[in-house]
């Protein structure tokens, strides 16, 4: 899989080696190796229970791996083993250089805090103390994700599903992260809203050169957003490669089944 990376001359952003997670005796995932470069979008697909969410949690340090390690190239260019980071460093990383867009917006947002406050939280956490500036920055981001500024002081409970997801994105991107994890960001949305959200994500990825690891069971989402794809089954990566290549010419029987299971409209 090194060919597709030669176009990016710099060192990888995120590297996982021999990653495994066991929940007691049950397998979460095992033997996962991956390399992600700046600006690259990687989709992890597979059916429910295939270990893709576990993998995402391992990469984003929400879970500690049973084996293997994950390292990340910090802003100063140094490659660091994430397990060796102090809690303070890890948190700083999570809220400055990383983002996490969750499937259920309620888990990624503060539902009792206004939209502006949600976007401003990361700024305040990194030391912004000027109300006017925080508000201006939050307003700019709301416009960017197509939320009307007059909704800025409403709390996300009054928002539709699509708006909540867009707000989550604004909240994550306000500190200009380099890497964003997304866990099924479009599921539960109706198709037109989904299409707009995907469009927005694609545009932001382009604009900011974001690296993204996106977990989805929707192959269309993977096709639209990702450069590369990893197919998981029973906790293992069974096939990976360029998205078009894997989806148009699947090699593994399971991937063939997955591709052929997509309903044509």
């Amino acid at each position: 899989m090194s060919q597709e990376m030669t176009s990016l001359p710099d060192a990888p952003l995120l590297v996982a080696e021999g990653l495994a997670k066991y929940y007691g005796s049950r397998l979460g995932c095992r033997d996962v190796d991956l390399t992600l470069h700046a600006g690259e979008v990687l989709a992890i697909v597979g059916e429910s229970g295939s270990g893709k969410s576990t993998l995402l949690s391992l990469l984003s340090t929400e879970l500690a791996p049973s084996a293997g390690h994950v390292s990340y190239r910090m802003r100063d260019g140094e490659m660091r083993d994430l397990a060796a980071l102090s809690e303070a460093e890890r948190r700083l990383l999570l809220r400055t250089d990383w983002g996490f867009v969750r499937q259920h917006a309620e888990q990624g947002l503060r539902m009792a805090v206004s939209a502006g406050g949600n976007v401003g939280e990361r700024l305040m956490a990194v030391g912004w103390r000027h109300y006017g500036n925080i508000r201006q920055e939050a307003a700019d981001w709301l416009v960017r994700v197509e939320i009307a500024t007059e909704r800025m002081d409403d709390d996300p409970r009054t928002f539709s599903g699509g708006m909540r997801q867009r707000l989550q994105i604004a909240r994550n991107l306000v500190t200009r992260p380099r890497l964003v994890f997304m866990d099924e960001p479009t599921s539960g949305l109706d198709v037109s809203v989904q299409a707009r959200l995907l469009d927005l994500i694609r545009q932001l990825v382009e604009e900011f050169g974001l690296a993204v690891v996106i977990v989805t069971h929707d192959l269309a989402v993977a096709r639209l957003l990702s450069h590369r794809i990893m197919v998981m089954k029973s906790g293992r990566v069974i096939e990976q490669g360029l998205t078009d290549q894997v989806l148009d010419d699947p090699r593994e029987p399971y991937t063939q089944l997955l591709v052929s299971s997509v309903l044509a409209a």
Binding site: R110, S114, G116, G120, E121, M124, A125, R129, I134
Partner: peptide, 9 residues
């Protein structure tokens, strides 16, 4: 940062 969010609100 969270405490500041309360004042922001």
């Amino acid at each position: 940062g969270l405490m500041q969010v309360k004042l922001y609100e």
